[in-house]
Amino acid sequence: MPTALECRNVSFRYHKRRPVLDGVTFAVERGQIFGLLGPNGAGKSTLVKILLGLNRAGEGSVTWFGEPLTTRTRRRIGYVPQDLALLYDLSAHDNVRFFGRLNGMSGKHLEERTRTVLDFVGLWDERGKQPGEYSGGMKRRLNIACGIVHDPDVVIMDEPTVGVDPQSRNHILESIETLRDQGTTVVYISHYMEEVERLCTTIGVIDEGTYLCGGTLEELLHAHAPEAIVDLELTTGTTVDADDLAGLEILEQRSGGVSVSVPEGQLDVMRLIADRFDDKVQRFTYIPPNLEQVFFRLTKKALRD
């Protein structure tokens, strides 16, 4: 499949400080939803600015559809920033039209696309209102409409669901799935692993400016988190001794609880746990392999830190 975006060995630092990005390399194929996952401060937004040409990489290169960023390629890119980038003194309708014009659209095509995207985000009936009159979720949806009005081939979405209510969040995620179904490539930046797991065809993990790994969800889980976790919360007054833990891989031991690793396919470990802790456990939680564990394995810290 042809490549929509290729980021090769990109490094960036502010003045002479510690690098914010260090040799980031990945590629996004067309038609994919590529999820870039990382905690706050990982360098995601800086990377987005470099992808869009707002910051210049100290080293490395970025190509879009095999070309460097030019006016022509810019027309094929949509951008939905993390913070709301709207004109508060214009109506929603005028906002969308303005950003359409900014991207070189005009005339009937612009009018049609304005209607299409406002319909798409469910704001056509409320198009006459100014953003200030919208709820937080509606503003986020308008923010998306302004980024896709020119029908781009690729959309970069930087944390589009931050701070929205569950209903609007679901609406946004469904919209992104529809975009994918229509053939649009989406670069989805987030620190919400559930969203990335739900939406993304391929996933890249970034932390402290370093691109840690990339691949499909299955590939990542297989390579970096091949085990499930069983978390045991002990009944009050109960303790565990060395005999209880013998033969088990303990991930974490705390007062009143213990987390045990369950490697893929090893059901005898489950049996062992059942035998030894049957009368000591107040609550038993089974956590299947997930991105959180991938991240933990790679960085020794939680994604939400």
Binding site: L52, G53, A85, L86, F99, G104, C146
Partner: peptide, 14 residues
């Protein structure tokens, strides 16, 4: 200053 500026600058307008 902020996301609106980023949106302007990310557009094909020079």
């Amino acid at each position: 200053d902020g996301p609106l500026g980023d949106r302007y600058l990310a557009s094909p307008t020079g």
